[in-house]
């Protein structure tokens, strides 16, 4: 049932790509439940990982007798325990995500669904957080525990509207205060707001692995207008009269790129990964981008 609905959402090419894709999570970010990711716990696993000297109290069934015959020293075998992972999707639904054709929010939905789909197939737990500051509203948390919950989770993602101000730091704080386990934190946003580096720092300080997917749009960097225009901020409503020419366009492009570059450096400095996609890209290209280093 779930698989069928996914077939409807992704075309054949994307489906094929997602079938091969894998989300790799570093062992320190795995959860406690059994899964497909290697964990730092050495226990009764299937995959042998190492040998160590025998100490009293060890299970005698784990003594490697062949090694004893070779070296006359008692050693015991160690095994990796394979566990699942928690995937936390921070999806930006602020008003600025409504810009572009298709809109950045549509691409963000697609990316989030693709990651969730792959994670669900790997028996990982997906928690999505739609963050956009609205007066009196808290970030929306939605957890996908098992495939049966996919339609509901997907419905929540699809019903998200682009509105409100970007408040990534506030969303991270709410997430941390909730006492979440360590996870792979995937941030899907256009990053065109302050507070992202602070949020990244807070996540990594709590042991979360950081993966940032920046969604770019030509309408931001090279607006298709010329001459006198009135620029209206999509989130604050602030207005500004601007005379657009080539030099203005170039200066705007440089300002946005400098900001994204600062975000990328911040992410990499914290051991995270940074991927940038553009709304003009084809879906399969986007999938290859976001799973390129992990598929």
């Amino acid at each position: 049932m779930v698989e069928k609905s996914l077939v409807v959402k992704f075309d054949a090419k994307v489906q094929a790509l997602l079938a091969r894709a894998r989300l790799r999570v570093t062992p320190r970010a795995t959860s406690f439940r059994q899964g497909e990711h290697p964990s730092p716990i050495r226990a009764k696993g299937i995959e042998p990982s190492d040998l160590r000297p025998y100490v009293p109290g060890d299970d005698v069934r784990r003594i490697d007798w062949k090694a004893f015959l070779r070296s006359r020293t008692l050693v015991v075998r160690q095994f990796e325990e394979e566990r699942n992972a928690n995937i936390t999707l921070f999806v930006d639904t602020s008003a600025s995500m409504g810009i572009g054709t298709p809109s950045k929010l549509e691409v963000a939905r697609f990316v989030a669904a693709a990651i969730a789909f792959v994670a669900m197939r790997q028996h990982d737990v997906v928690e999505s957080i739609l963050f956009a500051f609205a007066q009196g509203a808290a970030p929306s948390f939605q957890t996908l525990w098992h495939p049966e919950g996919w339609p509901s989770w997907l419905g929540t993602i699809e019903s998200a509207k682009a509105s409100g101000k970007t408040d990534f730091e506030g969303a991270v704080k709410s997430f941390v205060q909730k006492g979440s386990q360590r996870s792979l934190a995937v941030v899907i946003s256009d990053l065109l707001a302050p507070g992202f580096p602070q949020g990244f720092r807070l996540l990594t300080s709590r042991g979360h692995e950081l993966h940032v997917i920046a969604i770019a749009c030509d309408a931001d960097e090279s607006p298709p207008v010329e001459g006198a225009i009135e620029v209206i901020d999509s989130e604050s409503g602030e207005r500004l009269h601007v005379e657009v020419d080539e030099s203005m366009r170039q200066a705007l492009r440089q300002a946005i790129r400098a900001h994204r570059e600062a975000c990328r450096e911040s992410v990499q400095r914290m051991g995270g990964t940074y991927v940038e996609v553009n709304v003009a890209m084809k879906p399969e290209v986007i999938v290859q981008r976001i799973f390129g280093g992990r598929a």
């Binding site: 006198a228 225009i229 009135e230 999509s234 500004l240 601007v242 203005m248």
Partner: peptide, 15 residues
């Protein structure tokens, strides 16, 4: 002047 909706006006100000 024609209105144009931007993601974040701060970048326009910098430009």
């Amino acid at each position: 002047p024609r209105p144009f909706i931007a993601s974040n006006i701060a970048f326009w100000k910098k430009a």
